[in-house]
Design a protein around this nucleic acid. Structure first.
Lengths: 243, 243
DNA sequence: ATCCATAGTTAACGCCTGTAACTTAAGTAA
DNA sequence: TTACTTAAGTTACAGGCGTTAACTATGGAT
């Protein structure tokens, strides 16, 4: 646990600068512009030097994705913590809106994270290694939603499907997930959680990918309407303030 | 309207073969493997020859996307037409399931269509030209859903939010969309349509992109549960057979 | 003062898109 | 049939890419 040496500090700074340059290229020139040569050029270096810091372009992108997920999670947590601790309703709204806000103000980054858009990520839809940093970061942002959801359930339980109402195949999987995570939520609430996540993701992804522009050009009112419907489903209105 | 000349036939066949090779590379080796040289190699040609048929790689990919959308639409229409004409419930179920079925049996293609994953598509989230073939094809598959939805509404109207219940900003946009398309649906039903589309898309996209594997490994039961909930929302159960 | 790991370099291989200039073959008109 | 035109293909090349190998300079530790 000694203080980092001068070498280590310089190295960390260089790594940060590389990822910064990569992100700048992503934002300014699209995902295809993330290239070692271009990054090195921006930094006044040559491309092979970057191999001292990352074993490959793909590894660099993977770390960048993890950083972006962390940043998104941070902004969601900040929005949550700006609301009083007892006001779960306000906190859920805040986190939900922060998710969309980050997505639409960071479209290239969101696309990189959620739609495997980079050639260097190789053939999509191959099983990922859960020990990879981007997968770990992936669980973090999910937990922000999950923890609030659990809190809401414990303080103001809402109606959820009974075990009998869930199809057996789904019930078994959700039970397994329940054991795996040790969540206090009943299985039916897990289903509701996933269902809400599907709608939130669908809404934001469709907006970012531009697949709602055939009908709407300003998506926010539709988003707010959907969030309000989600809130009603969770019996979140009227305000669920406690204490 | 004369019969196509020999030249024209050969040319069309070559174009088809190029797109076929491009798709084979997409499926077998991922989106990054769609390169003019690789395609030309597979066809026993040289890369510059392909410029006789497409002005650029990007144009080729755009046409491929349009073809894939058409194929997806065809399979949805086939599933629809396999059900009796009067049984709207069965037809809606069939189209919905066909959408998912095509997506999960054609994951690379679905990803290419719905998540801008290709470098050659350039910077994502720039406004597309609606005259582009892929945008035209995009409206076709939406119409499959839309027409059934209208038919259902006309024969078995379901509850929809009143104009007063919709936030003004959303109402105005939906009214404009209503005029633009001349649909017989009331504005509230348009909202329900979009809302259903969001949930269906969210479910399928999350499955294809692998963002549900943190909880589930077999997604079909969850999909069926969500579809059942959508059906209930449309008062689709019990069976809405007519005639 | 010496040694060595680290961070950088240049050179090269084999991909890639895209353009220019050239050849060949087919279709068309005199 | 011959001559002209055009389409479809070729090679050559410019410039960008990831990655490896071999080499150099330099800062820190012994």
């Amino acid at each position: 646990m000694t203080a980092p040496s001068r070498r280590e500090r310089l190295r960390a700074a260089t790594i940060a600068e590389i990822k910064q340059a990569a992100r700048r290229r992503l934002v300014d020139h699209g995902p295809a512009a993330i290239s070692l040569r271009a990054i090195a050029r921006e930094m006044g270096m040559t491309a092979p030097a970057l191999y001292r810091y990352f074993p490959s372009l793909e590894a660099l992108v993977t770390e960048l994705v993890a950083d972006l997920l962390d940043e998104m999670t941070d902004s969601m947590e900040a929005a949550r913590d700006a609301e009083p601790e007892g006001d779960i309703r306000a906190r859920l709204y805040a986190v939900t809106r922060a998710f969309r806000e980050w997505a639409i103000t960071h479209r290239p980054e969101f696309t990189l994270i959620f739609a495997n858009p980079l050639p260097s990520l190789g053939h999509p839809n191959t099983r990922r290694d859960p020990r990879q940093p981007d997968c770990l970061a992936g669980t973090r942002y999910g937990d922000v939603f999950a923890r609030l959801f659990v809190e809401l359930w414990q303080r103001r339980p809402f109606p959820v499907p009974s075990r009998e109402e869930l199809p057996p195949g789904l019930l078994a999987q959700l039970d397994r997930y329940r054991e795996l995570t040790g969540t206090p939520l009943p299985t039916g609430a897990l289903y509701v959680f996933l269902s809400c996540w599907v709608r939130l993701y669908g809404m934001v992804a469709l907006e970012v990918f531009g697949h709602l522009h055939f009908a709407l050009d300003e998506i926010e009112p539709m988003f707010e309407a959907e969030v309000a419907r989600l809130a009603r489903r969770l019996h979140l209105d009227p305000p669920a303030t406690i204490r």
